[in-house]
Simulated assay, not measured.
Amino acid sequence: MADITRRPGWRHLRGTPTAHIRYHRSGRLVHDGLGLSFWFRPLTATLCEVPVDDRELAMTFHALTADFQDVTVQATVTYRLGDPALAATRLDFSIDPDTGVWRGTPLEQLATMLTETAQEHALDVLARTPLAAALTDGVGAVRERLAAGLAAEPRLPATGVEVVAVRVVALRPEPEVERALRTPAREQVQQEADRATYERRAVAVERERTIAENELASRIELARREERLVEQRGTNARREAEEQAAADAVRADAEAARMERLAQAEAAKAVRLARAEAEKARELGAARAEARAAWLRVHAEVDAAVLHALTGMRLAESVPNIDSVTISPDVLTGLLAKLGGGSREVGA
C-alpha cells in the first residue's frame, strides 16, 4: 500500500520498489513506474497501484477420480503481474487518493480466476485416473497438467499475469477411504513387526539356551575343579598331618633327651649339694664339739663363785625387760605382813 501524506489541497504519494504506480491527471498519464514519489491534487488525480512482486496463492478443492472417489487437492500457484499497465486496464487497481487503499478487490479476482482455471485442469486429469493411481502418481501428473494448462490459458496473458511456479502439495482421499487404504499396508507392517518379534524371541530363546548351556558347562567344569581341589586339599592335609606327626615325634624325642639331661644335671647338682651340706655339717659339728669341749675346760678350771655369777648373768639376760611395777594394796599389805613377821622372827 502506498504511503500518502496529506496537506491542504495537496497530497504526496511515496511508492515502494515492488509497486507500479500509474498517475492520470484529467485523463492524461503523468507518472508511470516503480517506486515513484510525487505531489498531486486529489480532485484531479486518478491513481493505480499494481503490485509486481511474486505472490503465493494456496488453493484447496475437491475432485472425483475415475472410480468415483472424492479426493482433496492441495496446491500452491506462484504468480506475478508482468505487465502492470495491462493489468491496470483489465482489473480495478485504483487507490483512494486520501488513504492509499484499493477501491476494489483486484487480488481476490485474480485468485478466483487462477483457482477456477487450476481446478478445471485438475478435475480433467483426475476424472480419468483411478484412486490408487491418483494417490501413487497423481501429484506429478496434476502438477504437470496445471503448469501446462495455466501456461496455455489465454486469459492470463491478456490480464498481464505470469505464472512463475506450480506446486501440488498433496492428494488426500476421504478419511474413511484413507483408513481403508491404510489397512492392508498397516496389516502388512503389523505382520512384519510380528514376524520380527517372533524372530527376535526365537533368537532370544536360542541365545538363552546357549547361555544356559555355557552356564551348565561352566558349572560342570567348576565342580570338576572343585573335586580336584578337594582331593588336593586332602592330600595336602594328610601330608601336613604326617609331617606334623614326624615333627612332633622329633620334638618329643628332643624334649625327652633334654629332660633326661636336665634330670641328670639336677641329680648331679643335688649330689654335690648334699655332699657339700654333709661336709659343712660335719665341719660345723666338729667346730661345735671343739667349742663345747673348750667351754667345759674353761668352766672346770674357774672358781664356783665365778660360775654362780655367770649363771646369774645368764638368767638376767633371759628375764624380759620390766618398765614399770604396779603394787596393789592387797599385795602391799601381804608383803608388809611378811616383812613384819620376818622382823619378829629375827628379834626373837
Results as ranks from 00 to 15, higher is better:
residue 162 E to G: 05
residue 345 E to R: 15
residue 309 A to V: 07
residue 223 A to S: 02
residue 45 A to K: 08
residue 215 E to K: 11
residue 134 A to T: 11
residue 46 T to G: 11
residue 43 L to A: 14
residue 284 L to E: 13
residue 317 E to A: 15
residue 147 A to Y: 06
residue 94 S to K: 06
residue 319 V to M: 12
residue 292 R to E: 09
residue 50 V to Q: 01
residue 23 Y to G: 01
residue 67 D to Y: 13
residue 305 A to R: 13
residue 158 A to Y: 04
residue 251 R to V: 11
residue 260 E to L: 14
residue 180 A to H: 11
residue 57 L to M: 10
residue 78 T to A: 08
residue 328 S to V: 12
residue 117 T to A: 15
residue 194 D to K: 08
residue 203 V to Q: 13
residue 32 D to K: 09
residue 6 R to W: 00
residue 42 P to R: 13
residue 340 G to P: 00
residue 33 G to V: 08
residue 290 E to Y: 08
residue 169 V to H: 10
residue 21 I to S: 03
residue 156 L to Y: 03
residue 51 P to E: 05
residue 66 A to C: 00
residue 53 D to Y: 08
residue 296 L to K: 13
residue 149 G to Y: 04
residue 111 A to Y: 00
residue 268 A to K: 11
residue 295 W to H: 11
residue 91 L to N: 00
residue 45 A to L: 08
residue 229 L to F: 10
residue 156 L to K: 03
residue 115 T to H: 08
residue 246 A to M: 07
residue 98 D to Y: 12
residue 263 A to H: 07
residue 205 V to A: 13
residue 348 A to L: 14
residue 206 E to I: 05
residue 320 P to S: 12
residue 77 V to H: 06
residue 212 A to Q: 13
residue 161 V to M: 05
residue 184 P to R: 07
residue 219 R to K: 01
residue 292 R to A: 10
residue 138 G to V: 06
residue 102 W to V: 01
residue 303 D to E: 14
residue 292 R to M: 13
residue 341 G to I: 02
residue 26 S to D: 10
residue 140 G to I: 10
residue 114 L to N: 00
residue 48 C to M: 07
residue 208 E to V: 01
residue 82 G to D: 10
residue 100 G to S: 03
residue 68 F to D: 12
residue 184 P to Y: 03
residue 32 D to C: 12
residue 130 P to W: 00
residue 302 V to K: 05
residue 129 T to Y: 01
residue 202 A to L: 14
residue 139 V to N: 01
residue 297 R to I: 03
residue 41 R to Q: 12
residue 214 N to W: 02
residue 206 E to K: 12
residue 139 V to G: 01
residue 346 V to G: 03
residue 223 A to Y: 01
residue 197 T to C: 01
residue 323 D to P: 11
residue 187 E to F: 15
residue 312 G to P: 01
residue 304 A to D: 11
residue 41 R to H: 14
residue 185 A to W: 13
residue 74 Q to K: 09
residue 272 R to M: 01
residue 192 E to M: 10
residue 237 A to W: 08
residue 334 G to K: 02
residue 230 V to R: 15
residue 119 Q to H: 11
residue 223 A to E: 02
residue 232 Q to A: 14
residue 261 R to A: 15
residue 327 I to Y: 05
residue 344 R to F: 14
residue 112 T to Q: 07
residue 21 I to W: 06
residue 263 A to N: 06
residue 190 Q to P: 00
residue 293 A to S: 09
residue 331 V to S: 07
residue 315 L to G: 02
residue 234 G to C: 06
residue 175 P to G: 07
residue 314 R to M: 09
residue 54 D to P: 04
residue 263 A to W: 07
residue 225 R to S: 08
residue 39 W to S: 06
residue 303 D to T: 14
residue 222 L to P: 00
residue 290 E to C: 07
residue 246 A to K: 12
residue 127 A to N: 09
residue 326 T to H: 13
residue 23 Y to C: 09
